[in-house]
Amino acid sequence: MILIALGANLSSAAGPPAITIASSLGAMAAQRIRVLKVSPFYSSPAWPDPSEPPYVNGIALVQTPLGPSGLLAALHAIEAEFGRERTHPNAPRTLDLDLIDYDGRVEEGPPVLPHPRAATRAFVLKPLADVAPGWVHPVSGKTVAALLTALPEADVAAVLKTTA
């Protein structure tokens, strides 16, 4: 199972964040990434500065002949296509595509697998539970439900399904 986290909190040439994310899913085919399933989109406060625009987040379950590093390069190319600039860590962005899991591999990277912070982020885990409710973290052995339960209730409550 290959899982990609989708996120954006700035508009791109394609449109507002939800439109940008949806458009990026279409762009994946040109990179030999086949989207099998997409979660509903969620809204979450920007971090670390909640005064910045809120994020739209989701998860895509994909299939690809690319290995992890090739897939990550393809995801970065798609981000660039949609105007992503890497100015500083946690900066607002037009598009963020993170490789969360690649068939349960545990690798020191690059890319690091599974994504090193995915298990502590409600905005990743809530949509992941929609797409892959049986997913188990390859390192901790915890289910996505158990990981969500372990997070602070306020963090989980702040991530809301959106119609955008």
Results as ranks from 00 to 15, higher is better:
L3D: 01
A18W: 12
P138H: 07
S140L: 08
S44P: 10
V144E: 02
H137E: 07
V112S: 10
P110E: 07
A5L: 03
S39K: 00
H137P: 04
E153N: 13
P114Q: 01
L113F: 10
V136P: 04
P17I: 02
A80Y: 01
S69E: 15
G70Q: 11
E107H: 13
L128K: 03
N90S: 10
D96Q: 03
G58F: 02
D101Y: 06
K161R: 15
H115T: 12
V159G: 09
Y102M: 01
H76G: 05
G70V: 04
A119R: 11
H137C: 11
G58R: 00
P50Q: 11
L10A: 06
M1T: 14
P53V: 02
A60P: 03
A122M: 08
A73M: 12
A30M: 09
K126M: 11
D155F: 08
T149K: 13
R93H: 13
T87K: 14
E107K: 12
E107C: 15
A74H: 02
P45Q: 08
S23K: 14
L10G: 03
A13H: 12
R86H: 10
R121C: 13
A118S: 14
N90P: 01
A22C: 09
R121E: 11
G109T: 05
G15C: 07
A150F: 02
I2N: 06
A60L: 08
A14Y: 02
N57Q: 04
L97Q: 00
N9R: 08
D49M: 14
D98F: 03
P110N: 09
T20R: 03
I33M: 05
T20K: 02
P45V: 04
A73L: 14
D96M: 06
A29Y: 05
V112H: 11
P89F: 05
M28G: 12
R32E: 13
S23L: 09
L61Y: 14
I19V: 15
L151D: 00
G7C: 05
G67Y: 12
A60H: 00
L147G: 00
A91F: 15
E52Q: 15
T20C: 06
P16L: 14
R34S: 13
Q31T: 04
E79A: 05
S43I: 04
G104V: 05
I19S: 14
P40G: 15
V56T: 10
N90F: 07
S11E: 07
I78F: 03
W47T: 11
G7T: 06
Y102N: 03
F41Q: 06
P111Y: 00
V144T: 00
P114D: 02
V35A: 01
T87L: 15
S23H: 13
L128A: 04
V112N: 09
W135N: 04
R117H: 11
P48I: 00
E107I: 10
I21Y: 06
V56C: 11
A146K: 13
T94S: 12
Y102F: 15
V35S: 05
T87D: 12
L128M: 07
A18R: 14
P133R: 12
A29S: 14
T94K: 07
